[in-house]
């Protein structure tokens, strides 16, 4: 559905934000995981035709989006990592404004806005100015505007940031429902979100895609090699440290049991992600 070939982008200060990225994403939900500064937002902006790559090609449904950015914009829903809103405009007025920009017929727009307000739990606040919204409410507004026009490609940068657990849950349901026949590209730090929602994921580090594929396939090589231990292990690759009733627990990747009290665990996407991070640190 979305194909990137040798996409690179270097900013004027010399920062290499995208480094020769080649990636093919199928329909459905795709998670993009990476640490801060990995280039996720640059990639999102490039895919949203907000900035042009220096080199490489991007096509969506066999349309070269550099040649025809307008074709992509007509099918795009975009939620940036952070965004502001016009002052003195109510939620519904701003959604109407954006729906007009998305060229949605008035009647259809009205219906969609109503549905989206319900979906994002904003109906009660439809007449309030968005500039007075709390962080979570504003994020829900952002999601609503992205969903306007039934986009074929939905790019969401940190969509669950600032949402309370209940709203997060609600958004998950919405996204699952929406992603049936479209591509939803989700960028987040919360690995759990991707694990819950996405059949596919890509790891991005230092501007490059280090691995991508179906999540089970990404996790599979780690199965039977992930351990949890209460004593700091001397061997293996440390995947994380957490506390249980105040006692530390370490999670380790090793092909053998790293200690006597180590217990074998089921590998998760987070383990895979942390493994990549750890490998990068070593390198």
């Amino acid at each position: 559905m979305l194909t990137m070939t040798d996409v690179s982008k270097t900013y004027s200060d010399g920062t290499k934000a995208l480094n020769d990225i080649s990636l093919t994403l199928p329909a459905g939900m795709v998670g993009l995981l990476g640490p801060n500064g990995a280039g996720k937002s640059s990639l999102m902006r490039t895919l949203a035709c907000l900035q042009a790559p220096d080199t490489g090609q991007i096509s969506f449904n066999n349309t070269d989006i550099q040649q025809s950015p307008q074709r992509l914009r007509e099918q795009l829903g975009y939620l940036p990592q952070s965004f502001g809103v016009y002052p003195h405009m109510s939620c519904v007025a701003l959604l109407e404004h954006i729906s007009a920009l998305k060229n949605i017929p008035r009647k259809q727009a009205k219906q969609q806005i109503e549905e989206l307000l319900t979906l994002t739990n904003l109906t009660a606040f439809a007449g309030k100015r968005v500039s007075t919204f709390s962080g979570g409410m504003r994020q829900r507004f952002g999601i609503a505007q992205a969903l306007l026009g039934d986009p074929k490609l939905l790019i969401m940068d940190e969509p669950t940031a600032g949402l309370d657990p209940q709203e997060r849950q609600r958004l998950h349901s919405v996204l699952i429902r929406l992603s049936k026949n479209k591509l939803v590209l989700l960028s987040t730090h919360i690995v759990e979100d991707i694990e819950h929602l996405c059949p596919h994921a890509a790891f991005m580090m230092q501007g490059a895609i280090v691995d991508s594929g179906a999540i089970p396939a990404l996790i599979a090589p780690m199965q039977h090699n992930v351990w949890e231990t209460s004593a700091q292990p001397a061997e293996g690759i440390m995947l994380g440290e957490r506390y249980h009733f105040g006692q530390p627990l370490w999670r380790v990747y090793h092909h053998e049991r790293p200690g006597a009290d180590a217990v074998a665990c089921r590998a998760t996407l987070q383990d895979r992600y942390f493994l990549e991070l750890a490998r990068r640190e070593v390198n």
């Binding site: 949203a48 035709c49 965004f83 002052p87 954006i98 920009l101 998305k102 060229n103």
Partner: peptide
């Protein structure tokens, strides 16, 4: 620069307005 000033630039620039 109104959209950038209001922080809505990316959101609106991504709309299919030519």
């Amino acid at each position: 620069w109104q959209n950038l000033r209001n922080g809505a630039a990316e959101m609106l620039a991504a709309t299919p307005v030519t």
